[in-house]
Design a protein around this nucleic acid. Sequence first.
DNA 1: CATGAATGAGTCTTCATTCAT
DNA 2: GATGAATGAAGACTCATTCAT
Lengths: 210, 210, 210, 210
Amino acid sequence: MPPQEINGFEARRQRRIARKHARIMKSAAQVFAAKGYRTTTTREIARAADMAEGTLYNYFAGKREIFLSIVEEVLAALLELLEDVGQLETRADVVAFVEMLFDVLSTKPASIRTLVMEAWVDDLILQDLLMERIVSIMAQVEGFIAASIVEGKFRPMDSRLATRMLFGMFAGLVLPVLRGMEAPPAPPERHAMAEAAVNLLMEGIQLRDE
Amino acid sequence: MPPQEINGFEARRQRRIARKHARIMKSAAQVFAAKGYRTTTTREIARAADMAEGTLYNYFAGKREIFLSIVEEVLAALLELLEDVGQLETRADVVAFVEMLFDVLSTKPASIRTLVMEAWVDDLILQDLLMERIVSIMAQVEGFIAASIVEGKFRPMDSRLATRMLFGMFAGLVLPVLRGMEAPPAPPERHAMAEAAVNLLMEGIQLRDE
Amino acid sequence: MPPQEINGFEARRQRRIARKHARIMKSAAQVFAAKGYRTTTTREIARAADMAEGTLYNYFAGKREIFLSIVEEVLAALLELLEDVGQLETRADVVAFVEMLFDVLSTKPASIRTLVMEAWVDDLILQDLLMERIVSIMAQVEGFIAASIVEGKFRPMDSRLATRMLFGMFAGLVLPVLRGMEAPPAPPERHAMAEAAVNLLMEGIQLRDE
Amino acid sequence: MPPQEINGFEARRQRRIARKHARIMKSAAQVFAAKGYRTTTTREIARAADMAEGTLYNYFAGKREIFLSIVEEVLAALLELLEDVGQLETRADVVAFVEMLFDVLSTKPASIRTLVMEAWVDDLILQDLLMERIVSIMAQVEGFIAASIVEGKFRPMDSRLATRMLFGMFAGLVLPVLRGMEAPPAPPERHAMAEAAVNLLMEGIQLRDE
DNA sequence: CATGAATGAGTCTTCATTCAT
DNA sequence: GATGAATGAAGACTCATTCAT
């Protein structure tokens, strides 16, 4: 059997495995999001993925590993996006960025809901997976704000506090979608929301005489 | 036996019961906050409250009832405060109000963390205990913002979005405390945070020429 | 303090104790009869006897001892009656005897129902408390039948089988009362039943030409 | 895969399940009969059926369902037999019928002992499972006796009482077997017992001059 | 003596994981 | 690789018994 043949088989096998992985993770994320990690049984995951319970264990070491894979995947997507937060310059940049965030959140709401849920409960998840990266991103944002203040573009303020409030503000916007109380906004609506959010953040709530 | 005697016995008994209730709820809230409702075992609650497992059942009908009592208690405290949200008028009012919220959150962080956690997972908790009341409070705030826009005090904006962002902003501030990542701020710090938060909300992040 | 005084106190104490014993046994028999021994809780017994759970243990060593006392008491009453089974001679004697049995069964249906129930399940109860005495009584009856056959008063038959059927026949009559499906028959009715029972037993069901 | 193959798999699966059901029910009936429903633990049932405790729950929803299945099964067997009670005409019919009853009782003594036990304690079992059907059968027998009296075949008597005594008589015969005090009679013995029973019932105990 | 709160062993049941087919 | 039956550890809850008041 020529090597390329072997590779062909091997590649096909890899693809089959990847497909199963994806199927399991997607199904599991749905159930996790709906019921919580602990309350979800492997039986439910298997049923949702339309396979036998035992089959799960051919692709993942266990329930926890399925969960971790989901979380890692969505984190990777989020972090890839957030990496570029340092590059933002114009207001349009920021609006576009917020829109993209909406986009990610709308694409994988189940995974993100699951991630948030466990990070809220499980110290290991929070520490090992999230904290380091979030801290780094928040530091970038905070640095950006601090610099803008020095440059005279932003008002003097506690940049740390401002960063937190900024993240919270954004979270407040997307929370009903994540929690499953509202459908994700359609793209045009998404743009309007991003505009409004950035606007409110920049200008404040109060009308000022000019 | 004179009636005051009877009342004396009965009253003492009531107090003893109330003390146990409080002890159990406090211990349980700690464990729930640290591990989540489902992951917490009655054995752990009993150990935390320094009593036998069976004793819990002399005071609560079951694990779920302990949890619900904790949640109801903290909700009552929160809602009592939030009820007055309609009365706020001056900027100082708002700052004071935010400070008081900080205060409540700092007093019972375990209970609130537990409440948030379960509301995030359990639809019944969210619907039956939270939504109705939160919706009403948000409606008040939204109405206030809308009115202020009409009066020309606030800039024209989507009042619904603004309300959400406002709640999110505040949540962003207190989240590290709730999550147990930071100690609650001391009262003077608390005032500074409240000032900064209200300031950022009102004036926006951006410096504007006057 | 003169001895008769002491005796007076002592006697009164004994009577008080006896009264409590009776109260507990009566109440317990009711609950046992209604729910079965295992299903009945000491809490229910205490409630039925209108006292605290702990008080039971001042009068009985435990739940099992309460039950055994009930059983012993009713057994004593039954056996006292059955002792005389050897003396029966005329048909009127037998009818009177059956009536008296009805009487005992009607007086303490709860206790008897309890006894039967446990004897049906618990080998120790059956062996230690019942078998010896029942066997002895059945032996008497069987002997009586055998003798009557020899004397030419009864038809030739398997006297062992006949004895069993006789006891079973009687059991069939009282079972609905014991099981609590029917009220105990009033005395006149009782007499009629006894007459009919003895009649059927003696003469058989079938009409015979004379 | 050809359809007969599918059916083959499915049929084999069904048979495997049926075998396990039978194994569990048989083992459980033994333990129930020996100790009573309430006193029997699922651990004991599992041990008796030589499987893990959890496995029980792959085949029955719970302990109660195991019990109910046992009861329903034996009831079905009994009732199928008793249905024909109305067809009996000659004395030989009756004797044959009694023999068949012996047969059923000897086949599943544990199940019947369990059934009787719980019907004695549990009102729901008695009412929902037994009474309706037993009442109907007793009514048939009673009607038969009453008719025979009218026809002049039986002596005048209280047919209701006679029915009860008849059932009791039969119960008295089989009770030692059911209670596990005696081995079931071998078939020839069985015939003799049936003969004797019917004879005694028909002719009575007393010798009468002809 | 009476009380009833405290105890913890023992119950039924669930479910992640293994493994024979 | 896929299956799903078997496993048994772990969990919520009950209740007979003890004991301080």
